[in-house]
Amino acid sequence: MNWVVVVVALCGVSSSGPLMAATAAPAPAIAFWRNASSAAVLVPLAGSRCREELRALSARGWRLAVVAGATLALHFAAWVGSLKLTSVAAATALMSTQLVWVLLIDRIRGVASPVQAVLGSTLAVVGVLVVSGFDFQVSTEALLGDALAVASGFFAALYLLAGGAVRTELTTTAYTAVCYAVCALVLLAGALAHGDPLVGFSGRDWLLIAAVTVFAQFLGHSLFNHLLAVTSPMVVALLLLLEVPFAALLAAVFLGEAAPGGVYAGLALILVGLAVVVTRRRVEPSVARAPLPE
């Protein structure tokens, strides 16, 4: 695994929370424009460079690509909404429950997880509960934000699993082009149906949306999509747990957002759980790549 790519990708996705929390534009608009802008760049590129592989993509591959795009849209809708209601640290930590969802979905599919993976995930869940418990004492609005963050983690897990399956047939450019285009269309339909404005924002907000697109979308999500081709969704979900301290640090520096001490205790537990899994777990290709149902 290329650890330089991992570090750059983590810095990219970690900028998402602080940047979107600082943006006054509505959550659906932020989510739509970051994906629509990315698709506008990648679709023509994929059309010229990846035409043959897109034509050769199986019907199952197309279905999985559409599922990945749709679940990514649901992830963004819940994730950006949570950032408007709770702290960046809490929202990021609870969104990281995607690791637990990946384990649970694998279990339902009959894929066994090593004891070390279960132990590390349990420690991470305890950390998440600590973060959520402290946030619960703040306000009922924050509790709703926490619930949305957990939902975003569930949809992120589905997105990782579907993406991991379809990445066996598509290159990063082709996959991200299809995925982001589907995601943007789903978000557009949702915004129009709900009556959410997509234009009319300040110049500062447009700059922040552009920054989210460049850093979080291209340097974050797209690089993690690349990693799905060389490692399992489980490992990617584990790596994404590192977004928690990265995002908390960025929020403290750029937003002046200081979380209570209990929140940092929860973040520490999440990192300990990550360390247990990463240093002990052994991923078997046959297990990590178990096929999704048709």
Score class of each variant (00 low, 15 high):
residue 206 W to L: 06
residue 153 G to V: 04
residue 92 T to R: 02
residue 56 A to N: 14
residue 22 A to D: 15
residue 48 S to F: 15
residue 72 L to G: 05
residue 183 C to E: 01
residue 162 A to S: 09
residue 78 A to G: 07
residue 257 E to L: 05
residue 95 M to A: 12
residue 30 I to A: 10
residue 148 L to V: 07
residue 155 F to Q: 01
residue 229 A to N: 06
residue 77 A to F: 11
residue 191 A to D: 07
residue 37 S to G: 09
residue 130 V to K: 01
residue 96 S to E: 09
residue 289 R to T: 07
residue 224 F to V: 02
residue 171 T to Q: 13
residue 25 A to N: 14
residue 253 V to W: 14
residue 172 T to K: 02
residue 239 L to M: 09
residue 229 A to S: 12
residue 90 A to D: 05
residue 178 V to K: 11
residue 72 L to R: 00
residue 87 S to E: 08
residue 225 N to S: 05
residue 3 W to Y: 15
residue 69 G to R: 04
residue 137 Q to H: 14
residue 85 L to C: 04
residue 134 F to D: 06
residue 186 V to M: 09
residue 225 N to V: 01
residue 235 V to G: 09
residue 86 T to E: 08
residue 206 W to I: 05
residue 109 R to V: 03
residue 196 D to G: 04
residue 133 G to R: 06
residue 45 L to W: 00
residue 72 L to M: 10
residue 222 S to Y: 02
residue 118 V to I: 08
residue 230 V to A: 10
residue 183 C to K: 03
residue 71 T to G: 03
residue 165 A to W: 14
residue 186 V to A: 08
residue 225 N to K: 13
residue 121 S to H: 07
residue 159 Y to G: 01
residue 67 V to W: 15
residue 126 V to T: 12
residue 180 Y to W: 14
residue 12 G to M: 02
residue 252 A to P: 02
residue 161 L to C: 01
residue 221 H to P: 00
residue 110 G to K: 10
residue 80 V to A: 12
residue 252 A to M: 15
residue 64 L to N: 13
residue 53 E to S: 04
residue 209 I to Y: 07
residue 163 G to Q: 13
residue 141 E to H: 09
residue 102 V to I: 12
residue 236 V to L: 03
residue 122 T to H: 07
residue 167 R to P: 01
residue 270 I to Q: 03
residue 198 L to H: 15
residue 276 V to T: 11
residue 109 R to S: 05
residue 146 D to M: 06
residue 202 S to Y: 05
residue 169 E to I: 03
residue 259 A to E: 06
residue 187 L to H: 05
residue 283 V to M: 05
residue 199 V to F: 12
residue 241 L to A: 04
residue 119 L to W: 08
residue 202 S to P: 13
residue 194 H to A: 13
residue 129 L to F: 15
residue 204 R to E: 12
residue 209 I to M: 15
residue 150 V to A: 09
residue 100 V to F: 15
residue 28 P to L: 08
residue 97 T to I: 06
residue 144 L to A: 10
residue 249 L to C: 00
residue 32 F to K: 12
residue 47 G to P: 02
residue 98 Q to V: 10
residue 110 G to E: 13
residue 232 S to E: 07
residue 37 S to E: 00
residue 194 H to V: 08
residue 272 V to R: 11
residue 198 L to Q: 14
residue 55 R to H: 11
residue 183 C to V: 10
residue 165 A to Q: 15
residue 243 E to M: 01
residue 169 E to R: 11
